[in-house]
Design a protein around this nucleic acid. Structure first.
Lengths: 147, 147
DNA sequence: TATTGTTATACTCTATAACTATA
DNA sequence: TATAGTTATAGAGTATAACAATA
């Protein structure tokens, strides 16, 4: 039980990157707590969602979209395939590439995951207030977009 | 040269955690590019700032404040000490604990780093607009604070 | 020659358990 | 018994280079 000490953070208090990191860690901890017994990580969830909404994409397209290096995407997707949540299928006309799809189990699982994520997201919205989340997303997009 | 494809991100488009992660990565990349030839990482910078504003803190206090596990703090601080940027000193009255301080070189270095960080932060502010940054910090704090 | 996917590998970050020396 | 710091270690996450198969 530590007394809340008045430690001076100096310029960190107004440093965008520092605030971003702390908030991201906090939000991801909540996500992780929610997904723990489903054993799904944020990156895996994002891949499943992309495949649900864009079945048949190539690995390069998915990994580029999500900012995952193709070399790192391979073991990530291998794990999903091993669990029979998603699969690689041959593509007509290009025997180098593979199309990525959810399996039926993957789709069913994702439906269950989305309910959990909705609860997780609701907790964020509670903290941010009704208009706060919209504002936050807008500001974050400005930081993410190149230029 | 890839054509910008219209890939559907589904619920990720309004997922706070996803937007947070992408923004944090973008901001940290800019920080890293700025600090590359100084060879200082975000966590190291934050430790140096805390020591500058709170000389003599114990390791536990610093690591707890910054959300770094004490076991991971040791090699982090070892590196700073090896480079003669900071040092551990004995504490009167408790021979288990050590007080942490910047060296003169550490203080001089930090002064130089702060100028770089100011430029980095200015780029963030440009993207966020004058009131945007203040709003963003407020919203991020709401996510970070427990409750 | 260029592209898709892959392997191997290394480095950072983070997490846990167990230890020491002191209190 | 509890605390401050430390060690060892394992697991993620991320980065680069090089390769095979195919275009």
């Amino acid at each position: 039980m530590t007394i809340m000490s008045d430690i001076n953070l100096g310029p960190l208090t107004t440093l965008t990157g520092y605030a971003l990191r702390r908030a991201q860690v906090a939000v991801f901890q909540d996500f992780h707590a929610m997904m723990e017994h489903e054993d799904i990580r944020p990156a895996q969830f994002s891949v499943l969602e992309v495949l649900k909404h864009n079945p048949g994409l190539r690995q390069t397209q998915v990994s580029l979209t999500l900012g995952i290096k193709s070399a790192n995407f391979v073991p990530l997707f291998d794990a999903l395939e091993r669990r029979n949540l998603a699969e690689r299928r041959p593509i007509e006309g290009d025997r180098r590439a593979r199309g990525l799809f959810l399996t039926q189990l993957g789709l069913d699982t994702l439906t269950r995951l989305e309910k959990l994520v909705d609860q997780h997201e609701a907790r964020c919205e509670t903290k941010l207030g009704p208009t706060g989340k919209r504002t936050l997303l807008d500001l974050l997009h400005r930081l993410t977009e190149a230029r």
